[in-house]
């Protein structure tokens, strides 16, 4: 028979090893908190392994999904080969599954949840174009692909179709929505011209 255990007392107390920062002078600072700005919102997160904390082993993808509940960023392979976890940092598309959260201290991160207008809910033109072209099937790859597209169009407002294909070349899409994705992205590019 199942025994119902309480859930509140259960998170184990394993002392998290606090990340150390060695300064120029050689002194050691132990970080107890890190700061992240995600989609314009500032978070101060405690280092640790309790709920809501950041363990030094946590990847940014894990923190976004499990700690901040921003589950739009997906984990596919968790190994840098599929693009599901793509977010934007410093204007560039990067893989949040291959970044340690503690190394993102002070960074500003944009995720798929940060593209639509937070007040009106109006979609980013890329998102709208994906809706209009049904540029997805199962939709699991979509957040990552949209984030790479966002980074691309930020850097280059009028990429060629070939450039679009190359910048999305790290994204897995098993349903084969590639053709509609390209149509959707090129439509945004055309409208921007």
């Amino acid at each position: 028979m199942p025994q119902n255990k309480g859930v509140e007392n259960d998170i184990p107390r394993i002392k998290a090893t606090l990340p150390k920062i060695i300064t120029e002078s050689g002194s050691v600072i132990e970080k107890e908190f890190i700061e992240l700005t995600v989609n314009g919102e500032a978070y101060e997160l405690r280092i640790g392994n309790r709920h809501g904390e950041v363990d030094p082993v946590h990847t940014l993808a894990h923190t976004l999904r499990e700690t901040l509940n921003l589950t739009g960023t997906k984990i596919g392979c968790d190994n840098g080969a599929c693009g599901a976890c793509t977010v934007i940092i410093d204007g560039k598309a990067v893989l949040s599954c291959l970044m340690l959260t503690v190394e993102c201290d002070g960074k500003s991160i944009t995720t798929i949840e940060g593209l639509a207008d937070p007040i009106t809910g109006a979609l980013d033109p890329i998102q709208q174009s994906f809706v209009d072209h049904t540029a997805f099937q199962c939709g699991y790859c979509t957040p990552g692909i949209i984030m790479s597209t966002k980074a691309l169009l930020h850097k280059n407002q009028s990429p060629t179709e070939q450039e679009v294909k190359e910048s999305l070349s790290g994204h897995y899409c098993r349903c084969i929505s590639h053709y509609h994705v390209i149509e959707a992205v090129m439509d945004v590019v055309e409208r921007g011209r």
């Binding site: 995720t111 997805f136 939709g139």
Partner: peptide, 26 residues
């Protein structure tokens, strides 16, 4: 005739909840 998928907005905004996205107490 083409029409947007009913779930299109959830998908493109990342709000679609796949099993791995579901949080339950405990």
């Amino acid at each position: 005739k083409p029409a947007p998928r009913k779930d299109a907005v959830e998908i493109v905004t990342g709000h679609a909840k796949f099993v791995g996205d579901i949080k339950q107490h405990g």
